[in-house]
Simulated assay, not measured.
Amino acid sequence: MNFPPDLVLFDCDGVLVDSEPLSNVVIQDNLARHGLNISIDQVEDYFVGGTLAGVMTTAREMGARLPDDWLDSMYSEIFDVLAAEVEPVPGIVGVLDALDAAGIGYAVGSNGPHRKMEITLTRTGLWTRLLGCIYSREDVTHPKPAPDVYLKAAADAGVPPERCVVIEDSPSGARAGKAAGMACLGYVAGTDPERLAPICDALFRSMDDLPGLLNLRTLA
C-alpha cells in the first residue's frame, strides 16, 4: 500500500504500554509455584501475543499443575502489578500526536480483556485518548492470530483493510494483521527481529521512527 494509511491499528501490550516484561515475570513466578520452571525467554517464545487461556492450556501440557480457577487468580496477579508499575512505550505519545496532526485515525486491537486495557491505558494516560476505539478479543469470535479484532476495528471505522496498517510486536499479532489483508509493521525493541521479519512488511526499533515509516512527515 501507499503510505500514509487511513487508519493505524495498534496492538496494546508491548506497543502502547510496556506491560510484557512485567507480565512475563509474574507468569514465570506463578508457573514455578505450580511445578513448571521455565526461563523468561521461554515465556516470551511460548506465550507473548497469545491469551492467558492459551497460557493455561500450554502450561498444563508442559507439566504445570494448575487449578481450575487459575485463570482468574493469574489475571488478578498481573493486574495488581500492572496497576502499580506499567509505563507507556517510549515515544508512543509522539506517534499519536503525529497521527492527530495528520488527521489519521487510530484504534487498538488486543488479545487482552477490556479490564486489562483499562488498567494499563489509564495508568499510562492513554485511556481517555483512545476511548471509543479500543477492541479486545472479547469483542470477536476468534483471538489473534485470527484477523477478527482488526477487521472489526476497521469495519467500525469504515476503512477498508487495504487502507489500514497494523503495528505489532508478536508473530501472532502480525499474522492477524496480514490475515486481515492489512500492511503490518513490526516493532522489535523487545522482540527478536527474526521472529517478525518473515511476516511483517517492515521492522522498526524505535517509536520515533514510526511517523517516518508511515510517511506522516510529508503531510506537514
Rank of each mutant, 00 (worst) to 15 (best):
9 L>N: 03
10 F>M: 07
12 C>Q: 03
13 D>K: 04
14 G>R: 01
16 L>M: 13
17 V>F: 06
17 V>R: 06
19 S>P: 02
19 S>M: 05
20 E>C: 03
21 P>N: 10
24 N>T: 00
25 V>Q: 14
26 V>N: 10
27 I>K: 03
30 N>P: 01
31 L>G: 08
31 L>A: 05
33 R>N: 15
34 H>Q: 10
36 L>P: 03
37 N>S: 15
38 I>F: 06
41 D>M: 09
44 E>L: 12
45 D>E: 15
46 Y>L: 15
47 F>A: 06
52 L>W: 11
52 L>P: 00
52 L>G: 03
53 A>M: 11
53 A>N: 14
56 M>Y: 12
56 M>P: 05
59 A>F: 06
63 G>N: 11
64 A>S: 13
64 A>P: 08
66 L>N: 08
70 W>S: 09
72 D>K: 11
73 S>E: 15
74 M>W: 03
76 S>V: 01
76 S>Y: 02
77 E>A: 07
80 D>F: 00
81 V>E: 12
85 E>V: 10
85 E>Y: 02
85 E>G: 00
86 V>K: 00
87 E>T: 13
88 P>S: 09
90 P>L: 09
90 P>E: 12
94 G>V: 02
96 L>P: 05
99 L>Q: 03
102 A>W: 06
104 I>Y: 04
104 I>E: 08
105 G>D: 12
109 G>F: 06
112 G>N: 13
115 R>Y: 07
115 R>A: 15
117 M>Y: 05
118 E>C: 07
119 I>A: 08
124 T>R: 05
125 G>F: 12
125 G>Q: 11
126 L>R: 06
127 W>L: 14
129 R>V: 08
130 L>S: 08
130 L>A: 12
131 L>E: 15
135 Y>Q: 08
135 Y>S: 07
136 S>A: 08
136 S>D: 10
138 E>I: 05
140 V>P: 11
141 T>V: 14
142 H>A: 13
145 P>Q: 12
146 A>D: 14
149 V>M: 10
153 A>C: 10
154 A>T: 02
156 D>W: 05
161 P>R: 01
162 E>N: 12
163 R>D: 03
165 V>T: 12
166 V>D: 04
167 I>M: 09
168 E>P: 11
169 D>E: 10
171 P>W: 01
171 P>R: 08
172 S>P: 02
173 G>D: 01
174 A>N: 06
174 A>I: 08
176 A>V: 06
177 G>R: 00
177 G>Y: 01
178 K>I: 00
179 A>G: 00
179 A>C: 08
181 G>F: 02
183 A>K: 04
185 L>P: 06
186 G>F: 05
186 G>H: 02
188 V>T: 15
190 G>H: 13
193 P>D: 10
197 A>Q: 14
197 A>K: 14
199 I>G: 04
200 C>K: 06
200 C>Q: 03
202 A>V: 04
203 L>Y: 06
210 L>I: 07
210 L>N: 06
211 P>L: 03
212 G>C: 01
213 L>Q: 11
214 L>E: 00
216 L>G: 09
218 T>C: 07
220 A>D: 13
